[in-house]
Design a protein around this nucleic acid. Structure first.
Length: 563
RNA sequence: GGGCCGGUAGCUCAGUGGCAGAGCACGGGACUUUUAAUCCCUUGGUCGUGGGUUCGAAUCCCACCCGGCUCGCCA
């Protein structure tokens, strides 16, 4: 089965009676096949700054797992936590006078730096990532905010357990992560009653009802404590668990059964190992299934907002619309590191082509070559709308990215009309949206990443090398075309008129069409191929065209290379 | 130093014990108006290296080399 989906039954015919699948699954379906009972899929994030593309693989994987569970008929819930009691530890977005005051305070208590719209720093930046997720079709059933949960008292029993078993916690840190805390260290951060900071406090005693804490000036380098100390009952929102314990407590509180996490946390002796051990030994619950995932690199380097030209996250989003971005994150298995090099390569057009191939295969159309196992799932989970009619969506007309990139460079082309002609019928509303989205992406691609060979530019001067490489009859053809153009009553003005003339002269000269076009592209673009030649010539000044044809016709042939 | 991922055709990658594959690129051919389209054909690999297991290894085991990311304080 090398060339098509031949032999594969349409889904509708299979789903009624076939209890087993013949087709291999994609990784998410495989995962879903391996679990039993209702599932709670969870992840959480500290709202400390803006999100960038590189950090979106996790959420997409999370959402895909949930969709795959649902597709299999498993009861599944998707939760997303906002760790907004975490201390403010990045000063980049603060004004200088706010740094001293705000660094170390819970993010939920820091004012919105944007000023007006949100009640806190945390709400502002969480709002951004919630919006970003929504834009990618990731809509959890519920976002839960730790600043809401602690005051309800729901975390109190976990706080109590952590304090009662402080010695166990210290032993876990020592054993699993080789981190040695002092014997007086307790796993809890109190919000200082005096300065309101949480990142600067340390608990040293626990009497079963209250803790003794100190707000130390030099506990951390990034924030300065006020020196206050005292006894306080650490419940109902007055304190929070440190990261590894909070994570494990969330699993118990919410009944989490699956939680993916990035390789930075999944590493041996890392955060996940610590939290797993804490879940088992302190909260006495098996930790959720981990799905470790690798990161995305750009040109072999870590993705960042401040890379060189073309590698910055915001530029990448401009050339990769949401569904292609989901596809990009989903297609490889989670534990596969992906290196993406968009700059001066055809990586972006290829991503679109791959997506379109998956769509075509899902629609039951024949596709060239082999296609990855589980392609239907991969395509389905790439769609923004999780309830989309997959078959209908797969069958939509999607213009090829590189074709659009070409059309966009030719003057006076009605792209929508050309695409419609290609399809053979009017575009639907959704197809028009897809077209517009791709046109935007293609423009951005041409402006940032496109390699030289994708750029069509009429050369100001004769591309001598390309013309010299032509055969004699091809050069003669160019001269003949100039003569023909000048001898007509008026030089051809329309693309169609030029196109007719190109073919007519070629026929007269007994030149194959392909060789005639190649000669034209060489003379004007210095390449062997290009956009529809008639329309290209029509967009240029007529005098320039005939001059160039004559010059090219008169140019010398390439010297024969001695054998 | 620990961990993870990768090394298979020029490029991007699939291939978890049974004759080394696909797409693209390259080369050749077809086509009298979709010409960066479409169709046909061809070329191309010491599966990172060295051992081991096996009737049989890209695939399993061991060691190593190379590339990259990540961790060791905090989250």
């Amino acid at each position: 089965m090398a060339t098509s989906t031949m032999g594969r039954q349409p889904l509708s015919e299979v789903s009624g009676e076939a209890p087993r699948r013949h087709e291999p699954d994609d990784w998410a379906d495989e995962l879903a096949a391996g679990v039993n009972g209702p599932q709670v899929v969870n992840d959480s994030k500290t709202p400390s700054g803006t999100v960038h593309v590189g950090s979106l693989r996790g959420p997409v994987i999370l959402d895909t797992i949930w969709r795959a569970l649902r597709a299999r008929g498993i009861e599944a819930h998707l939760l997303y936590g906002v760790d907004d009691l975490d201390p403010m530890d990045a000063q980049a977005l603060l004004t200088p006078d706010a740094i001293d005051r705000e660094m170390g305070r819970p993010l939920a208590h820091v004012p919105d730096p944007a000023g007006d719209c949100h009640e806190s720093y945390a709400r502002h930046f969480a709002g951004i990532f919630i919006e970003t997720f929504r834009g990618l079709g990731i809509v959890p059933e519920r976002y839960y905010w730790m600043s809401d949960i602690y005051p309800t008292g729901d975390m109190d029993s976990y706080i109590r357990a952590a304090l009662d078993r402080a010695q166990v916690v210290r032993a876990i840190y020592r054993r699993v992560a080789n981190v040695q805390h002092p014997d007086t260290w307790h796993p809890l951060s109190v919000i200082c009653e005096s300065c309101g900071k949480i990142g600067t406090t340390i608990v040293t005693k626990w009497d079963g009802a209250r803790v003794f804490y100190e707000c130390r000036e030099t506990l951390v380098t990034w924030a300065k404590g006020c020196g206050h100390s005292g006894w306080v009952a650490p419940f109902g929102g007055r304190a929070k668990l440190p990261w590894n314990l909070e994570w494990a407590a969330q699993w118990s509180l919410l009944g989490v059964t699956i939680e993916p996490c990035g390789k930075d946390l999944s590493t041996a002796g890392g955060s996940r190992d610590r939290s797993d051990a804490i879940a088992r030994e302190v909260f006495e619950r098996e930790p959720p299934l981990n799905v470790p995932y690798e990161f995305i690199n750009i040109g072999g380097k870590k993705m960042s907002t401040s890379r060189g030209r073309g590698a910055a996250a915001h530029e990448i989003v401009e050339v990769i619309p949401p569904e292609q971005l989901r596809f990009f994150f989903l297609r490889p298995k989670p534990n596969t590191a992906v290196d993406f090099e968009p700059n001066q390569t055809d990586a972006v057009p290829r991503l679109f082509d791959e997506f379109d191939r998956f769509a075509a295969a899902t629609a039951g159309k024949p596709v060239r070559g082999e296609i990855a196992p589980g392609f239907e799932g991969t395509f389905r989970y790439s769609l923004l709308d999780r309830d989309a009619d997959v078959a209908a969506d797969a069958a939509l007309f999607r213009p090829a990215f590189s074709h659009l990139a070409l059309l966009l460079q030719i003057p006076n082309v009605d792209v929508a009309a050309r695409v419609e002609a290609e399809k053979g019928s009017p575009l639907t509303e959704r197809e028009t949206d897809i077209l517009n989205e791709r046109v935007r992406a293609a423009r951005a691609w041409l402006a940032t990443y496109a390699p030289e060979r994708a750029i069509v530019a009429v050369r100001e001067n004769l591309p001598a090398d390309a013309v010299a490489a032509l055969a004699d009859d091809q050069r003669q053809y160019l001269g003949a075309l100039a003569d023909a153009a000048l001898s007509t009553e008026a030089t051809p003005a329309s693309g169609e008129a030029w196109q007719d003339l190109i073919f007519a002269v070629a026929a007269e000269a007994g030149l194959l069409n392909g060789r005639a076009f190649a000669a034209l592209y060489a003379a004007f673009l210095g390449r062997t191929n290009g956009p529809r030649a008639g329309w290209l010539l029509a967009s240029l000044d007529a005098g320039f065209v005939t001059d160039r044809l004559r010059t090219a016709a008169a140019a010398a042939a390439a010297p024969q290379v001695p054998a």
